[in-house]
């Protein structure tokens, strides 16, 4: 039984070592260990990709690196639900939010989505990706007016692709339908890229898609308008809907930023907010984002808060009609 004794001793020793390893936490000034950032989408997606770029200088601005953790599923719902129910409130677990997605889901699925603008604390906003209206290169439509005229004559016959249900692209179409008094057919795809492919291949007549992706495929597309309140630096020639006389504002813009769970100490939120705003304005971060074709829009905590509640009000109006059905 000599071996048995040795074996048990070895186990006890190894366990003790692991305990020691695990408990070497020395309390210091926040942050004294890496910060986790939950991304509710898959690695390689636009949100994940941008989150990695904008946080790459965290060591400089926060003194600790940021580790990206992907928790994809249910259009973002899995990650955000996990975040508001299970994340630690000590500032070491943050989340990347997507407006209008998470606000729209909180309105449309009040029983499935446990998050809303009241149980997440905005830290800072880093980017915006406005939706653009695209048609295939060989499409007979050369302007928004052409498309609207056709849709008026053929109600329910014009097909529009977008990246899913209740995402920015869908919201942009709902706004356009209301502004122009038309009825169109929205076809949700599983993500922006398949939705764009559907426009390029002519499967659908038109689509709302991300500026960055449409810009990359611009030699196979016509970009008719941008759903924003101002023109986009990547496509300065393309007019906004408002310039063209349609009341479509920036509610549908895909805005991304960082939030903390409600209950995180205010001094930590303040510290994070200051550091993130500075980090997002870092020249290297800005250049990398521009190289990737992603639009920057840096907002402070207060500005983000205001943007969230403005978006929620507008979305409640937009969804009122389709939800009452």
């Amino acid at each position: 039984m000599r071996w048995k004794g040795l074996y048990l001793k070895a186990i006890v020793l190894a366990v003790a070592c692991l305990f020691l390893l695990g408990s070497t936490v020395i309390a210091g000034e926040y942050p004294d260990k890496p910060i986790k950032l939950i991304v509710s989408y898959s690695p390689g997606g636009a949100t994940d990709f941008q989150a990695r770029i904008v946080t790459m200088k965290a060591q400089t601005y926060l003194g600790q690196p940021i580790v990206i953790i992907n928790k994809p599923g249910g259009g973002g719902m899995v990650g955000w639900n996990w975040f508001v129910t299970s994340a630690s409130k000590d500032g070491y677990e943050l989340v990347a939010y997507n407006v209008p997605h998470f606000i729209a889901q909180s309105i449309v699925y009040p029983d499935k989505a446990k998050y809303n603008i009241n149980n997440m604390e905005p830290i800072a906003n880093w980017g915006t990706d406005p939706a653009v209206l695209v048609v295939p290169k060989n499409s007979p439509f050369n302007s928004v007016q052409d498309l609207v005229d056709y849709a008026k004559k053929n109600p329910g016959k014009v097909t529009f692709s977008g990246a899913g249900r209740f995402v920015g692209h869908h919201i942009a179409l709902l706004q356009l339908e209301k502004a122009a008094g038309i009825k169109a057919k929205y076809i949700p795809y599983k993500g922006g890229v398949p939705a764009l492919l559907a426009v390029i291949s002519g499967e659908v007549m038109a689509g709302f898609n991300n500026t960055s992706d449409a810009y990359r495929s611009r030699d196979r597309l016509k970009i008719l308008a941008v759903a924003d309140i101002k023109r986009n630096p990547f496509i300065p020639d393309v007019k906004t809907f408002q310039e063209l006389g349609f009341n479509v504002d920036d509610t549908s813009n895909n805005r991304r930023g960082i939030a903390a769970p409600k209950g995180t100490p205010p001094e930590i939120i303040k510290k994070l907010s200051d550091a993130f705003v500075k980090m997002f304005k870092d020249k290297k971060v800005q250049k990398r984002m521009k190289d990737g074709g992603s639009g920057m829009m840096v907002l402070t905590r207060e500005e983000t808060k205001e943007m969230w509640s403005r978006t929620e009000k507008e979305l409640q109006k937009v969804f009122k009609e389709i939800l009452s059905k």
Binding site: G45, D48, V193, L197, I200, R216, S217, D219, D291
Partner: peptide, 27 residues
């Protein structure tokens, strides 16, 4: 050629290309 990733892996590779300022497409 189309800047459209045909598989999940290709989607991840697209991210890797974009980060270096390489926009896939016909050109």
């Amino acid at each position: 050629t189309l800047s459209i990733p045909g598989s999940p892996t290709a989607a991840v590779l697209l991210g890797g290309l974009l980060i270096h300022g390489i926009f896939p497409g016909p050109n």
